[in-house]
Each structure stands twice: as structure tokens, then as C-alpha cells.
Design a protein around this nucleic acid. Sequence first.
DNA 1: ACCTGAACACCGTTCAAGT
DNA 2: ACCTGAACACCGTTCAAGT
Lengths: 216, 216
Amino acid sequence: MPARTGRPPKISKTDILTAAHRVIDEEGTQALTMRRLAREVGTTPMALYHHVRDKDELLLLLLDEYAAGVPRPEPPAGAGPGERVVAAAVAMREALTRVPWIVEVLRADDLMSARALWYPEEIIDAAVQAGLTPEDAVDAYRIIWHYTAGEISARSAAARRREDDRPTHRGRVFEDLDATRLPRLAALGPRWEELTSRDTYDKGIRALVRGLLPRP
Amino acid sequence: MPARTGRPPKISKTDILTAAHRVIDEEGTQALTMRRLAREVGTTPMALYHHVRDKDELLLLLLDEYAAGVPRPEPPAGAGPGERVVAAAVAMREALTRVPWIVEVLRADDLMSARALWYPEEIIDAAVQAGLTPEDAVDAYRIIWHYTAGEISARSAAARRREDDRPTHRGRVFEDLDATRLPRLAALGPRWEELTSRDTYDKGIRALVRGLLPRP
DNA sequence: ACCTGAACACCGTTCAAGT
DNA sequence: ACCTGAACACCGTTCAAGT
């Protein structure tokens, strides 16, 4: 092993990732810029590029770091395959809910940190146990993933909307619905806000499992 | 009606929206910036702010304009409620697929152009016909919406990825899977790309309908 | 009433130079 | 080997002034 030469490092990858994590946790994904991050770790924007190729790579590293902190949970003992799928999906959603920005990074590549692949593994395995072919089990996983990603991103967008309290477009639209063209919505109108703020993830995932797995 | 006074307009809202539409169609959402749009219609960025409050309002107007072009399809004649839900969901997804950027605008506010509310109306109505309470019908619609939004945005992200052909993170991850920890994925590994490029929207929506509506 | 110009406070990234 | 400075080519938006 040759002696390390040249200028000694001032900042490390770890410094960068720690700071990035902090910024995202405190102010959300859109606050994470290379320049902001540089300020946070006390260097110039360009120093960062010596440690990561570009912003995309930074996000991937962040994702990996986060995934490392998610423990692989045990499947519920004595549960049938359907319950195993539900448990894995609920755990996956739970893990992602605290970090909805990840869904945006992930969208292009599915759940692609090697450390988080436990979720698809468990869902696919349970689906095969339930009697699906491997191909159908992959379809089932992808359908569940699409549902989960959609739910998380809708919920985090709704949370953001509640924060800035300017009147929503939705509110204005629901105030003057044409009751003859849209009778159901017009009748539900006053309760729409309340009805659509309920957490229906569980209900949806159970419906999917009922519809996707063969009846026992 | 008083005579119009002052400087005659050089550009109209319609000019702006037409140009915006063109830019998005040709180069995608991320190409639509106020400055770029100004160049396109032949003015300064600031002139635009005389016609729209800000970029968000512009996106909402664009959404509305697009929704106006989506005809209200007839529910399939003689079909049961389950088939009506499937048909409406498939039509909704079809309408959105050509304009995936809309899903991002929509995410915060559900399907909130008054002109596109036919989709939730039809889905909720069919669900009530099938025997659900209005509350359960709203849940069913939202679950279907989350699934649909997730599917569309995953698919459009995948399409974008296919365009720039640098090797994907996913590819690298799937090359060295730990077969003892993740046996199912390791076995599927070589076929993952092929298996996850299939269109499974229909399969998912049918599973949801089976799982959400009471059995006939 | 409508448009312009200059300005503010930002982005990600490249490139050449410094220690 | 690692960091810096200046620069490029962008953003959305405000504000004061012009026609």
C-alpha cells in the first residue's frame, strides 16, 4: 500500500452525506442544492464534485445510506401468504413515509437500493407461496409498488399543501359543481375534504391482495 | 361597456398557452420555463406575468385547457358496475398517459380540473351501484387514483430513463445479488428488465375492482 | 393597460489554476 | 490529491419606469 500523497482532504463523503441528510430532514428535498450543501459543510460548491460525480449520484448515495438504517423485519409468524404480502407492503410504505423525497428518486428505478430489496423479495416470495407463477408474482409486486408510490406521493403533496394555507384550486372547483352533470360529486362536495383526508392505504393493499392472489 | 383604453395587447393568454403546450409536447415539462416561454412567444419574461399570476397558475391553466379536449366517454352499454369502473379507470389512465407531466401538477390536488371530473364521478357512481356506501365509493376512487398516478409516473420515468442510455443503477444492483439473502430476486435477476417492462395496468385495476367491490 | 430593463437571489456544472 | 475562483448558461420573480 503506497503512502497517501497530495493535499490532505478537508471534507469527506460522510461529511457531505450527513449534511445532506440534515438539510433534507429539516427543509425538504427542494432545499437540497449543491451550493446550499457546500455552504453547510463549509466549502465551495466545486469541492463536492471531487467526492460525488453529480447530484444524481449524491441522491443515490443518500438513498443507500437511508436504506442501510431500515432493518429487515421478520415476516409475521404463522401468517398466510396474503398476510405476509400485506405486512411487507405496510412496512415498505411505513419506511418510505418518513422520507417521501425518496419516492421521487426511486421512481425511475423501482426500489433500487440493494439493502431495501427485502421488500420485493418478501412480497414476491409470499405471492409464489400463494400459488402464483414467478411472472405473476413480479406483476403483483409491481402493481403493489405503483399503488404504494402513488399513495405516498399524494399524501406528501397533500401535507405540503396543508402547510401553505392559500386557498386550493380544488376548493374553488368543488364550490360550483354542476349537480346535473356530476350528481355524485356534488352530493359529496361538502364532505370531500374530510373524506379524502382519511388513510386508506391498508384498505387498498388488502383489496389488491384479495384481487391478485388466488383464493385460498 | 366602456371603451378599452391604454396600450393595446401584444400577446394574449391564448398565445402563451399555445406556446406552452408546444414546448411541453416537444421537449417535456422540464423545458417549460417562464424565460423559455417568453422567448417562444417573442416577449420578455416579465410580460408573461401580466397575463398569469405565476408559474403555478400557468400550469393550472394548461391543465384546464388539456382537460377541455378530453371528451366525456359513454360508459359501456350493458356493462356491470365492475366493468364500468374498469372502463373509466382505463380511460383516465389513457387520457393522462399522453401528458404525464399533468400527474405532477395534479398530485397535490387530485384530478382537479372541473372538466375532467367525469372520471371520479363515473367511478364513484358505479361503485355505489355495485353496493358500496358513498364513503366506501370515495375510498375506492382514491385507491384507484393512487394506483393510476403511481403507474403513470413510474412509466414515464422509465421512458425517460430508456432515452438517456447510460447504464442504470438498477442494472448494477441486479448484477450482484446475494442469492442466499434474496433467492427469488436472484433467480429472476436476468429477466427483471423484461418482466418489469410489461404493461400491467389492466391486471392491477381488475384486481382492485375484484377486491374493492362486493362480489355480485 | 400593457410591456420593458435592470436587478435580486438563486441553480448545476466545467475548466484552469492553485496548494 | 484535493480545493478554489471565475465563468457559463440558466432559473422565478419584484420593482420602477416607459409607452
